[in-house]
């Protein structure tokens, strides 16, 4: 037992000496910049690309697993420094609250757009030829119905925590549907996979960038396009007495950081703000990982090799 302890202590000591002795002259601070990792592939890729770029610029980087929303508490205090993907659609509220408190800054758009909407597999078009127009939904409510929902169509919504106003949308547009909330997106896509295997009816919340719209053939339902007024002003849209008579908002995916970051690592701040990647490029990378089984690391290395011109501009002095 004592032997083990000694060995460990020695190992740490050596490790400390080695780390401590490292000098990287060209950056403002050698403290590691902590980027947060979540549990969806796109975010892992984005974050790893950012980390790789920062390392190329000479920064020390640490990747920390953190919960998507709980991380704001850490970003506010400077325990964590950068979160690469805050979606307009799911994280806006928490982001705004944190920015208002003062500890967190919005570091701009990533270039990717989050899309979320009702979605169905293509084979459902046979049973419901009017799709993708939302007005066709009521006519084929029976096709989407199950034992639990009775005559109403079943719409598999996201976890309650995602919000999304689907109950309001159904009421405002007079849809004969019932929302069943999945608890997580894993559960949601498990149902999709299951139904898709059997070519059974399913109508659910899908978002992009994600592997699902790449893997399964399907379409988004087309609701009246979102405008800010639709969610706030009842007069807007086809139902003059209700809000939410439109589709879900499109929105950017944001980068956020600790408020002290621009001061401590000005160069890194610039690079993070400059980071830009588009949906198609990201979608392709996600598919490589989730559908073709490549590792995130390989995919990121590949991107780094192919896009040297792009990222060197981000870190150019």
């Amino acid at each position: 037992m004592t032997r083990m302890c000694l060995a460990r202590a020695a190992a740490t000591a050596t490790a400390l000496v080695l780390f401590g002795g490292m000098a990287l002259a060209e950056v403002e601070s050698e403290d590691p910049i902590k980027l947060t990792l979540h549990d969806w592939t796109g975010q892992l890729i984005t974050t790893n690309i950012m980390a790789a770029v920062l390392e190329e610029a000479g920064y020390n980087v640490e990747l920390v697993q953190a919960d998507y929303l709980a991380q704001f508490a850490g970003l506010e205090t400077g325990d964590l420094h950068v979160a690469m993907e805050i979606w307009e659609t799911t994280g806006r509220e928490a982001m705004d609250a944190a920015v208002a408190k003062g500890g967190v800054v919005n570091m701009g758009e990533t270039g990717m757009l989050a899309k979320e909407e009702w979605w169905y597999p293509l084979y459902m078009k046979e049973k419901c030829p009017g799709l993708p127009d939302w007005k066709a939904l009521n006519d084929c409510a029976a096709a989407f119905a199950t034992a639990e929902t009775g005559a109403k169509g079943r719409y598999l919504g996201g976890p309650v925590t995602w919000g999304g106003f689907d109950e309001e949308r159904i009421a405002a547009l007079g849809l004969n549907y019932e929302v069943i909330h999945a608890g997580t997106d894993a559960a949601m896509f498990a149902e999709l996979e299951s139904a898709y295997q059997r070519k059974d009816p399913i109508l659910l919340w899908v978002y992009a960038p994600h592997w699902a719209p790449q893997k399964y053939e399907g379409e988004w339902v087309e609701f009246p396009p979102y405008e800010a007024a639709c969610y706030t002003d009842p007069a807007w849209g086809s139902n003059p007495t209700a809000t939410h008579d439109c589709g879900k908002p499109f929105g950017p995916i944001w980068k956020v950081g600790w408020a002290g970051l621009p001061e401590k690592w000005p160069g890194a701040d610039k690079a993070i703000r400059a980071f830009h990647i588009e949906n198609d490029a990201m979608g392709a990378m996600i598919a490589k990982v989730d559908l073709d089984g490549q590792t995130v690391e390989d995919v990121v290395n590949e991107w780094m090799d192919a896009n040297e011109a792009t990222w060197s501009a981000w870190i150019a002095k």
Binding site: H181, A186, M188, A190, E193, S194
Partner: peptide
């Protein structure tokens, strides 16, 4: 949990 959801849906 996930296989169960595939066979019995959420709920």
């Amino acid at each position: 949990l996930i296989p169960v959801v595939m066979l019995f849906r959420v709920g």
